[in-house]
């Protein structure tokens, strides 16, 4: 469904992605691991069209996304939850959600249904719907970022380090949400530092190093193979 083929990305003159190739199938939950600064976030931004791929192709549902503006990419069914959350801080929770809900082709009943679904997954957002996004706690902002992505009714969500800096209780909640999304048939490309969590929720895993994918395989294989984890990530699972 989503596939990157030999993608190269630059920031100015610095060459960050050196030919990244990966695929995510419909409804598949795929992990993308790697140490700090290897280009995981850049990979997601390249898919969104937020940074331009200088070479290679990004294909989604048979469509070449390369060179497409981010808002077109989003409307094709790809949602992005950035690592720094990027809540619209001066907009209320409800207005943050409206940035995704108020699109063409969403009827009023459908809109209400979507909102109910989002509030059912994140009851705390309903309570805080008139509060400015910037006044939410870190965990609540993370939930709002995921909820906001859900309002786009995407086919795939690009999740960038959703559990970073969260308390264990919040991490468990994010984990649950990932399960809910998967059951709904959404595909997820999950970038994480939390290796155990990634291995639990993902069917397949990619590991990046220096702007390239160096390892790919089923999560089960990685779970059984401490040496690979240690070699590429410098941690033990």
């Amino acid at each position: 469904m989503l596939s990157l083929q030999d993608v190269h990305t630059y920031y100015g003159k610095s060459h960050v992605l050196h030919g990244v190739s990966l695929e995510v199938g419909p409804g598949e939950v795929v992990g993308l691991l790697g140490r700090n600064g290897v280009g995981k976030s850049t990979t997601l931004k390249t898919v969104m069209g937020l940074v331009r791929a200088a070479d290679g192709r990004v294909v989604f549902d048979g469509r070449d996304l390369t060179g497409l503006a981010p808002h077109h990419v989003a409307r094709l069914g790809i949602a992005w939850v950035p690592e720094d959350r990027r809540i619209f801080r001066l907009l209320t929770v409800m207005e943050n959600l409206r940035t995704g809900l108020d699109r063409q082709g969403v009827t009023e009943p459908r809109r209400r249904e979507l909102l109910d679904k989002v509030y059912a997954s994140f009851p705390v957002l309903r309570e805080r719907r008139h509060q400015a996004g910037g006044t939410l706690s870190g965990g609540e902002q993370q939930m709002l970022a995921i909820a906001r992505a859900m309002t786009l009714e995407p086919k795939i969500i690009l999740l960038d380090e959703p559990t970073e800096g969260l308390m264990p209780r919040m991490v468990a909640q994010i984990r649950e949400i990932i399960d809910v999304l998967r059951r709904d048939g959404l595909a997820i490309l999950l970038v994480e530092q939390n290796v155990p969590l990634t291995l639990e929720v993902c069917a397949r895993v990619y590991i990046m190093e220096k702007g390239q994918v160096r390892y790919r395989g089923p999560a089960g294989e990685l779970r059984a193979n401490e040496t690979i984890i240690h070699q590429y990530l410098g941690v033990s699972a």
Binding site: R86, F88, R89, T99, R148
Partner: peptide, 20 residues
């Protein structure tokens, strides 16, 4: 809302499908 979102964070607004 589109205008305010774009004013605050142009890139995030475009990633939400707002025609910036």
């Amino acid at each position: 809302i589109w205008i305010r979102a774009t004013t605050q964070d142009r890139l995030m607004a475009s990633a939400m499908g707002i025609p910036v």
